[in-house]
Design a protein around this nucleic acid. Structure first.
Lengths: 336, 336
DNA sequence: CTGAAAGCGCTTACAG
DNA sequence: CTGAAAGCGCTTACAG
């Protein structure tokens, strides 16, 4: 039966030393403090035997840092964010950090709340896929001196670390690919959100079309209102396909739009790869398994997570000035 | 410009009252403490104007609870766990709780570590999809008196709250369905993990087959070793299909096996719904989008999350005795 | 080589 | 109606 020890005091009492000594040993400062080998071993032995773990809360209160990174995304159940969450978790864990997460549902109000909540929890760093309108709140935490890394969503007016992908280029290449295939009636199915990411996805598409010299009318941009249910989206897209039967290529600007879109196409007599080329943003098993397989613009999850965590720890260790940096990673066009 | 206030002391000073008074007002105990209306309003005004938020860490240290629920799963990026995580987050948030998560990769060792880490962070409750071998560690936190709810994975030797689904019944019904379709060469593709959940999935299948009076040899159970890569799994399943060409129905015991399995079937000349019926555990868009659509055994995510959170808060409010309860929810067989 | 003591920011039993 | 003070479990500057 091991001796229960609930606090550093118990350990100190058992070892007949002060809590100061125990604390130094626990924090690996025994050598620098010239604590005798005998004492170190005695204390360490008691700590091991008792299974004592320092109370992180007390430590946090004293030191001001929590070893926790706050992660704020739109929806943790979204495969993109879930994937990032997992990778961040792994990488943070290796450095002794844990992750606390929350979903904003793309609401600035909720984002503000979460930031405040995280602040009161003394998180050491923030990783945020921000909703529009959260600029002021994010500015505040930056001013607090805490590391902040934004990702996925770009907020142009904020001078802060950002990790994202080159959406313009991705859409541009997708559209170019359609054109090279000989397609002439391209459609972009996108969402009506006024966020940089989405705007760039449209701009890249439009630019490629413009460069091709196609008449404007030959290309079409459908903006599905944010929050439209899956059924309504499908109805809307089926209608579109019927009204524009000449459509021969579709780029879906988001993953969930692609899923609705594929379900919509199933309801028509259009055959993918025969009547219609399709490319979807954000790759997943779902596109690999689809018959036929669907080409996709794959965000480099691993690289994104790497860049985020690298930035976070750079800032946490605060070596040199905190150089603000925008990292733009390339999207991979996976043709199938 | 609002007045910055970093601690309760600042507020107290500004309002010319003691921190005691501020604390009571902040915690809604003003009335019960008979604090004058004038003071309440003055303090509240200052709090609002300054944007002051109490330091949760200090509060935790003092009160012993953190308003944090620890979530331990195999892999937060797995859609099932990500979905549960999201639902738990929502429900917990409404009660002022946040979630901290970690992935175990199904290792008991990692589970132990995480439990200790969470303990040192003073989480108020644990929600765990446990790895085999974590029994002793889970027993410890139960003895600490913290609410613990296990889900997904069942640990028979532990007398603890559990929320899961009726895996036996689900497999049983799936196999019965195959038999009712006239299928006579059923295969179960499962994983070689020695966990209750998986064992039940096999038992339900075998029982249905046995009841049908089919010769044993007519049914086949393939156990893919845990951790086999997707490619190797596919190879293995393609081989199986070639060696047992009479196979006319396959039940996949996990989501990822189904995905590998569907990819494997694509490599053969078998046509689903013509040569072969397929049912997969854990529904998802991926099966709805597949051509043809794949029938699935859908876990009731929402109900699972509901049951978990209900149990957690029941125990947190500790009304009555902590009645240990096993909740077994039915799986829905979605035929397509 | 080691320890007493202050202090992180709260909550709350006690006193008036 | 309100406040002084103890204490949650640590870390660390200071002293010897």
């Amino acid at each position: 039966m091991s001796i229960k020890a609930h606090s550093i005091k118990d350990i100190a009492a058992k070892a007949n030393v002060s809590i100061t000594t125990v604390s130094f040993i626990l924090n690996g400062k025994a050598v620098e403090r010239n604590i005798s080998k005998a004492v170190i071993e005695r204390v360490q032995g008691i700590v091991d035997a008792s299974g004592y773990k320092p109370n992180q809360i007390a430590r946090s209160l004293r030191t001001g840092n929590s070893q926790i990174i706050g992660l704020i995304v739109e929806d943790i159940a979204n495969p993109f964010f879930a994937g990032i969450a997992r990778l961040l978790e792994d990488k943070a864990y290796k450095k002794g950090y844990k992750i606390i997460y929350s979903s904003t549902e793309n609401q600035a109000e909720k984002t503000r709340e979460l930031i405040n909540l995280f602040k009161s929890r003394q998180v050491d760093a923030y990783v945020i896929a921000p909703a529009q309108g959260a600029e002021a709140d994010i500015k505040k935490i930056i001013n607090d001196g805490k590391p902040v890394v934004l990702f996925d969503r770009y907020l142009p007016e904020l001078d802060v670390n950002y990790v994202g992908v080159d959406n313009f280029d991705a859409s541009y290449r997708a559209a170019k690919h359609f054109l090279a295939e000989g397609k002439r009636n391209l459609v972009l199915v996108t969402v009506d959100l006024d966020i940089e990411q989405i705007k760039e996805r449209e701009a890249g598409f439009q630019t490629a079309v413009a460069e091709s010299g196609l008449k404007k009318t030959a290309s079409l941009v459908i903006k599905v209102p944010y929050g439209t249910s899956r059924e309504d989206t499908i109805t809307l897209l089926v209608d579109m396909l019927q009204q524009a039967p000449q459509t021969d290529a579709i780029l879906f600007a988001t993953n969930y739009l692609a899923i609705s879109g594929l379900l919509a196409i199933k309801q028509t007599d259009k055959v993918i790869n025969k009547d219609l080329s399709v490319i979807a943003y954000d790759d997943g098993d779902i596109f690999k398994l689809h018959t036929p397989q669907i080409s996709a613009l794959a965000q480099p999850l691993e690289e994104i997570a790497d860049s985020i965590i690298k930035k976070v720890f750079e800032q946490l260790s605060a070596k040199a000035e905190n150089t603000i940096e925008k990292t733009i990673l390339p999207v991979k066009l996976v043709l199938r």
